[in-house]
Write a protein that binds this DNA or RNA. Structure first.
Lengths: 138, 138
DNA sequence: CTTCTACTTTAGACTGATTATAAACTGATA
DNA sequence: TATCAGTTTATAATCAGTCTAAAGTAGAAG
């Protein structure tokens, strides 16, 4: 994908294609594989690999905007900070509770049967399966 | 359960039965139903319902000790604060992302099939299923 | 090409949950 | 009853995330 594609993508979704947003698009979507990251990871990556100092507030703003547009997903873990994922397909995770390592599991790999009805008046938005793992004790 | 039972329970697991820990046991385990709470919830509950002002730091210490002993569970949600659960049986949750309401789902209700093998060298510790729900739009 | 305006970015202040600290306290044991 | 390691406590410190108000910028209009 080229810069112009990102510019169009941003414009089409009502986000002004600013220098910062375009650079973040490059960092997130010009990769072969999808990946997980924290806000801090991304801010540091922008500075180191893209030579672009972007304010933390802007990184937060941009990620939340991208999340709302469905360009990234946010992952909930038993951790103080939140993780983002450029893999936006429906999928689950292995999570190493000791190292905080995250590994995708394709949603087709796990079959969920007998999902109970949601409480009255509520409807299901998404189902997250987190398989907590740990290194075998040596 | 009486106080003496809690004292024994604590002593048997290597925790000194202090006044604060015994009171917290009463609050958590002398109930008909299991329930969910935050650290703040518990601190306030201790003061109001048990007339016992317990320092926040102690509430944190005690809950972490109880968690390590398996007397409570901690629940991971996409939320800044963490939730505890006196239901220590293996189970899952409905989670209302708007109201932060949590509802238990017995683990027998959901069938998980084809759980993939964990990454090499790691083993599965626990599987958490969170069904995110939202109020139907009116 | 300039002007204008609404949308963005930014540094830094702020918040709220959690953890660390260091002094005072207390249960268990001799 | 004296001792001491384990606990509690108030408070300071930390850290992710949000807010704010000022400065910057994209895009439309002239």
């Amino acid at each position: 994908m080229k810069n112009q594609d990102f510019i169009n993508k941003l414009r089409n979704s009502g986000l002004r294609p600013t220098k910062q947003r375009i650079k973040i698009c490059e960092a997130l979507f010009n990769t072969e594989k999808t990946f997980h990251f924290t806000v801090n990871d991304l801010a540091k990556m922008m500075q180191k690999n893209f030579n672009e100092k972007i304010s933390l507030a802007t990184v937060y703003n941009t990620l939340h905007a991208f999340k709302k547009k469905g360009y990234v997903k946010e992952i909930s873990l038993g951790n103080d900070k939140s993780y983002f994922d450029t893999n936006i397909s429906s999928h689950h995770h292995f999570y190493d509770t000791k190292t905080n390592e995250l590994i995708d599991i394709d949603s087709s790999k796990i079959e969920l049967k007998n999902i109970p009805n949601p409480p009255k008046g509520k409807s299901i938005k998404e189902i997250d399966v987190v398989i907590n793992v740990e290194n075998d004790s040596q």
